[in-house]
């Protein structure tokens, strides 16, 4: 089984992965990601507190939390992808060895890169569409398009990171993350 299998959620081991390799691009990503997830929790907490203790909830909390979720998901995407951290059910893992395995690993990287680029493209289209239709959110009346463009950009960034990993794979340089996956063997 792969290291990152489905139920392996918030295991204590996970923090080591986050801290492992850190090219400079990751620092701003991590700051934004951490701020978004903490902001979402803190805002929700203060909103409830405000509602019950001071009878004054924070207007728009519900919407802002939803927008922050988008930020969490797409700042997380490059962090997860560059670590080969996606959830897999690679049942045949132990049977694929040697060069077959190298081909498999390369194809998985490339396929992931292409799929993530596709997600980025869908987001870009959706953002343009919302901007063209002057779509605004219901409570705050703000446009989501800039946020959606940012999410799209983060998806394309993820694609670029994965393509760099593909390139390193071809040139046989060590690939970040993939060899140090720490697979659970049986």
């Amino acid at each position: 089984m792969s290291e990152q299998t489905l139920s392996e959620m918030d295991t204590p081991g996970a923090e080591e992965k986050g801290a492992r390799q850190t090219p400079w691009v990751f620092t701003p990503l991590k700051v934004v990601a951490a701020t978004a997830i903490f902001g979402m929790s803190a805002l929700t907490f203060i909103d409830v507190l405000g509602r019950y203790l001071f009878a004054s909830p924070i207007p728009g909390t519900f919407e802002i939390v939803g927008l922050l979720l988008g930020l969490v998901a797409f700042t997380g995407l490059p962090l997860v992808s560059s670590n080969q951290g996606h959830i897999t059910v690679d049942l045949f893992d132990n049977f694929i060895r040697g060069s077959a395995r190298r081909v498999r690993d390369f194809l998985v990287l490339l396929g992931t890169a292409l799929t993530v680029a596709f997600i980025g493209h869908r987001l870009l289209t959706a953002g343009l569409d919302e901007a063209a239709n002057d779509f605004v959110t219901e409570d705050l009346g703000i446009s989501r398009a800039p946020l959606i463009y940012l999410m799209s950009a983060l998806a394309f960034l993820t694609c670029v990171l994965l393509l760099i990993m593909c390139w390193r794979y071809l040139t046989k340089k060590p690939v970040t993350g993939i060899s140090s996956g720490g697979k659970h063997s049986g």
Partner: peptide, 20 residues
């Protein structure tokens, strides 16, 4: 504190991709 936040981001992103 920072590690905890990133760990939660990491797992969230993993799961959100699957939910989509």
């Amino acid at each position: 504190f920072f590690e905890s936040l990133l760990e939660a981001v990491h797992t969230s992103a993993m799961v959100i991709v699957i939910v989509i």
